[in-house]
Design a protein around this nucleic acid. Structure first.
Lengths: 191, 191, 191, 191
DNA sequence: AATGAATGAGGCTTCATTCAT
DNA sequence: AATGAATGAAGCCTCATTCAT
């Protein structure tokens, strides 16, 4: 593996960390990360003062990539349903195509190493969904739900969909379609 | 006969592991586990040959407790909706009341240490939901879904509900009711 | 394996220790010894206060067995050559037929655990050879040698002979005959 | 380039291991070895991946030193007797002057940790003696002996000689002379 | 800035020995 | 007396981090 030059090194390390964490959990050693990145052990610490800092950076990085993937070409003017479907579909696709970042993100999210501030930055993505949903509520299209519940519902069902696709990738399209039907069904359910 | 292996000690160790894993992740040390259990470090290894074996035992134990909690007083004769609601409600309640086992179970499930056979034993609980759902399908009450999808939907929304309750415990009852409404809405959604 | 009753237990333990030490070295665990002996871990310590004490007892026991084997039917009245040959032959035979005790004895001899007094008891066997040799010296049959040198020569060449037989057991008789010829040749060499 | 692995440190560690094994047996702890070497415990493992690997390296190292000592100034053109005497004398001297390596070599040789290949490398030294002896055989100077027997005879008597000198160092020269007389007497003995 | 050897704390596990049964 | 669980001190090795080159 060619040694990437200064600018890329950071990215190499983050990519390596993603891969290695996904495979071995957060307990994976920094030395495995650096060797996977094709970088010396010491270098890791010039880019990240601490393993924890690396983990925090990774968390931010993956969230950003995810947000990019989900928000790209967002159909701002389309109907609520279409906009929710966009988020759902893009999220699921990203997850299926990027299993390592997905797993790493989950591991990191569950750990105690994410600084409070960092975590706060995070919820943005599904908060968007909440805003969207609230808008729909005001238009009387759907029932009201407590804050976060709509976004978390979409998130939960999207992740479930990814896992089903992991097990049976050939049915990906089918699962994806059904998945969103479940989301919409849930959000529009009457009391 | 010598002093018999005490069931109490074993339980102490599992309880300590649950607590310690929930707080520090699976990387928590055996020495922290044993001291939390009020037992010498050596003793941990007379009850579990290996840390991995402890983790596997913990996994089985928690799943069993969860199954007990969910299946107790199961209303075998009630309607599909009521039976699903029973599972949902009991699952959510168990999760809210037992945050440490819930977290530990999640951590263990995501790790690589669960022996294949052990994992296989596991899915039983939500497979029950699938069976139940299939029955409803045959009665034309609900739309057909691929295997697992119904069970996983209920599971995903139940876990989401637990997390919302964690953040705002006072609304527990409300979240729980809404949560199941989402489940039912999802499962009965029309194409 | 039937649990031997009180009197035999000690012997069982010594036999097990012999076997286990021969296979794994002195670092072999007491628990392996006791289980090999078909005895509980605790019992070992009622027969031997300490692992070191077991080792010392083993040392004494094997030396006694060896002395028995070598001194049995000793031809007190035969020529010096015949008496030396008797010792050589019996020693080699014992070693070849009892590889585990032989190995164990060697390991124990090299360790630091043999109490000084115990070690002193030991040299008796080859000291006999020295006495015999001195007698021959006085009869002008052979050249004088410093104390111990004759006995140690016989011992060294006997052990070498055992090792050659280990590698090529079919030639045992041949090695044994040649071995003694070397001993006699050495001891009768002229300056 | 970073700090290079220092040959000195490696030698320190091997020297410390030699000393410590000679005193306490192979069970001596890696921590005692590293502290004796004046090095952190971690460092030991940057030079030797494993304690076993250290032991194997030590075995090779000592054998090489011994071979150097014995083969230096080897009188290639001298008589068989003189060449054998050279080997004997140098071996005994080395052993007497280097008791720790001698003891360590013996301990290691008896253990189960020497990789087969490593052990094979080893026999070279006394195999040389065998070759030399065979040459003499062909010149009708001495009686034939099975392979290895001549070399092992010299080895056995040399080691015996070292032990006698250990006990009574003032007689070293005398033992050494007598020792070789025994060797020569043994090897030239008539049937 | 990059490298990788050096460090020593700490992790999992084994072991000799003790003690409750 | 016999059993084997309980103990806690090591033992080997790994790891995050520092530092010489």
């Amino acid at each position: 593996m060619a040694r990437p030059k200064s600018e890329d090194r950071r990215e190499s390390l983050l990519a390596a960390a993603t891969k290695v964490f996904a495979e071995h959990g957060l307990a994976a050693s920094t030395s495995l990360i650096s060797s996977t990145a094709g970088v010396s052990e010491g270098s890791l610490f010039t880019y990240f003062k601490t393993k924890d800092e690396l983990v925090n950076a990774l968390y931010r990085e993956i969230r950003l990539e995810l947000a990019d993937a989900v928000l790209a070409n967002f159909p701002r003017k389309a109907s609520v349903r279409q906009r929710l479907e966009h988020v759902f579909t893009k999220y699921v696709s990203w997850g299926v195509e990027n299993p390592a970042p997905r797993k790493a993100l989950k591991l990191v999210s569950m750990s105690n190493v994410i600084a409070g501030e960092t975590r706060a930055e995070g919820g943005v993505l599904f908060a968007e969904v909440d805003r969207l949903y609230k808008e729909a509520t005001e238009q009387r299209r759907v029932q009201a739900l407590p804050t976060h519940m709509a976004g978390q519902t979409l998130k939960a069902l999207a992740e479930m969909t990814m896992e089903l696709i992991d097990r049976d990738p050939e049915q990906a399209a089918n699962y994806q379609a059904l998945g969103f039907r479940l989301v919409w069904g849930a959000l529009t359910s009457k009391p």
